[in-house]
């Protein structure tokens, strides 16, 4: 019974995710290329603007690229997951389906897009001086943990966004700020010592550290980073699903 439920949910998630991907690029000439061009445009700007300022960082383009790929994934996923329930209002109101399907398929679509973008980006990373060691394989579990975190926080915000559309607007307002607050283009020690507590309070800081350790420094992430990132993923995922289940009964009357 449980197996059947999971298989059924997977088929639904797959179908809706595929639809999301198709619709996203349907009317554009470059289609899927856009998901590569977007981070690349930022990368070029960063190289122009910061490579002098961060001359002390060896292989700066690689440093920035790693940050940009995983920021873009987070940002895109959040945009999609937060609005996934509202965007599917007409389906939710007319067909009986497990509604968790909508945040999950939004997350799945973005994950697939990101994984596909990793193929060309890996070549680019090699060009910028990525060394492939056995540490590189750690990127797989790291992406998994990061995806869980993204789904958790997105589902949490998406649930409340049904009742208070302010949440979606709030995210749109805050995401550029979060982008600059997260050490993507710069080293975190650029921020004065007395503000380090704020830096550490940003969950994305820890995920960036995780990916940089693996792909830039070619080292095993510290156990502190591993514990923090896994714990945050677990907590946000649990809270996100809990809140979703608790408030889903109000979806139909608020959509």
């Amino acid at each position: 019974m449980l197996f059947y439920k999971i298989k059924n949910l997977y088929q639904l998630v797959y179908t809706i995710a595929l639809k999301n991907i198709k619709v996203k690029y349907k009317n554009s000439v470059l289609g899927y290329m856009w998901s590569l061009l977007h981070p690349l445009a930022y990368l070029i700007i960063f190289i122009f603007v910061f490579s002098q300022a961060f001359a002390n960082i060896e292989r700066y383009p690689l440093y920035a690229l790693v940050g940009l790929i995983f920021w873009t994934y987070f940002n895109n996923s959040m945009n999609q997951i937060i609005n996934s329930i509202i965007n599917n209002a007409s389906i939710i109101k007319t067909i009986a389906l497990p509604n968790i399907l909508f945040p999950l398929s939004a997350a799945f679509a973005e994950l697939v897009t990101m994984l596909l973008s990793l193929i060309p980006f890996f070549s680019l990373m090699l060009f910028f001086g990525l060394q492939i060691t056995w540490h590189t394989a750690l990127v797989v579990p790291a992406i998994f943990v990061y995806a869980i975190f993204t789904i958790g926080i997105g589902t949490l915000m998406g649930t409340f966004n049904v009742f208070f559309r302010d949440i979606g607007i709030l995210w749109n307002t805050l995401s550029p700020a979060l982008f600059y607050f997260t050490p993507i283009a710069y080293l975190s020690n650029l921020i004065p010592e007395k503000y380090q507590a704020f830096v550490q309070a940003n969950p994305l800081y820890h995920y960036m550290t995780l990916f940089r350790d693996i792909l830039f420094y070619n080292q095993m992430p510290s156990s502190r980073t591993i514990i923090i990132t896994c714990l945050m993923a677990f907590v946000t995922f649990t809270v996100g699903l809990f809140m979703f289940n608790r408030y889903k009964k109000g979806f139909v009357s608020n959509l």
Partner: peptide
């Protein structure tokens, strides 16, 4: 509701 859920781009 007739037409609910149809994706107009596809």
């Amino acid at each position: 509701a007739i037409g609910a859920g149809l994706e107009h781009e596809l």
